[in-house]
Design a protein around this nucleic acid. Structure first.
Lengths: 133, 133
DNA sequence: ATATGTGTTATACATGTAATATAACAGACA
DNA sequence: TGTCTGTTATATTACATGTATAACACATAT
């Protein structure tokens, strides 16, 4: 599994899990329809509790990134990912505003900030070695 | 005062305060050397507790955005803001990665994401009406 | 000197979140 | 019949958040 947790981090475990699964989908390491480990399996692999994994899966299900099949278990959304909703736009802008302000105060120019965003996006999409076809 | 808090928000009050003060500096509404209200005064104005304001001030002081003078009280850093440190770069990239991945999964292109970042930066810098010289 | 206003520190309390630990349930399946 | 699935319930521990009082040291103005 490509998931690595930092138990010392200030960001909650369940949030790290959510982030890394989304990044896995974005990078292509996780394809639509791909199965995910069961909550018990993944919890044991990562050395964390069943409920922590379940919380992450539920958040991703609620966002429309995952589906829960009684047969197939938990799989990556096969029927098309949710689009850029108004709610997402607002959340995106709110978080970007906080980052942009801190960057601007520290003297980072608009060009550098925009380029940094573009660069991070590209690195996220780019396969980070480890997916198999 | 230009600060507006959302007590229903999931983001802590002290974090909202930190964000809005940084945005105030970025926009120019708060200039280097400008005084900030005392912890007791601002707390009363906002209808929150003294310690919540103090926590925000301390975080900003620790980052180098504010100074505490025994005479002048709390003022906006007059001796040059901290630059783009390695620690800030890491934090910036880590947060951008999370946003970029979610945006990519939802179908937002690299161009749109970069443009969105640029746009938000510009709006942050632009004076939002309300500062006085 | 006295009173007032600074930031700062200490203590305590209430509330909510995060994470863990067991346990049980209903549905699918071999 | 077991076994594995997601799901739910309950309890506990630890920590973060926010509030409430109180006090301290320092500066300033009356």
């Amino acid at each position: 599994m490509f998931i690595e947790l930092d138990l010392q981090s200030e960001t909650p475990i369940y949030a790290q899990l959510v982030d890394q699964i989304v990044e896995g989908i974005a990078s292509g390491a996780l394809q639509p329809g791909d199965p995910l480990p069961s909550v018990r399996r993944l919890a044991e692999d990562l050395g964390i509790n069943l409920h922590t994994v379940n919380k992450s899966y539920n958040l991703l299900k609620q966002e429309g990134f995952l589906q829960v099949h009684r047969k197939k278990g938990v799989i990556v959304q096969p029927d098309g990912m949710p689009g850029v909703t108004e709610a997402f736009e607002e959340k995106l802008r709110r978080q970007l505003r906080s980052l942009a302000a801190a960057a601007a105060v520290r003297g980072m120019t608009e060009e550098v900030f925009a380029q940094e965003s573009r660069s991070v996006y590209r690195n996220t999409i780019t396969n980070h070695g480890g997916e198999q076809h």
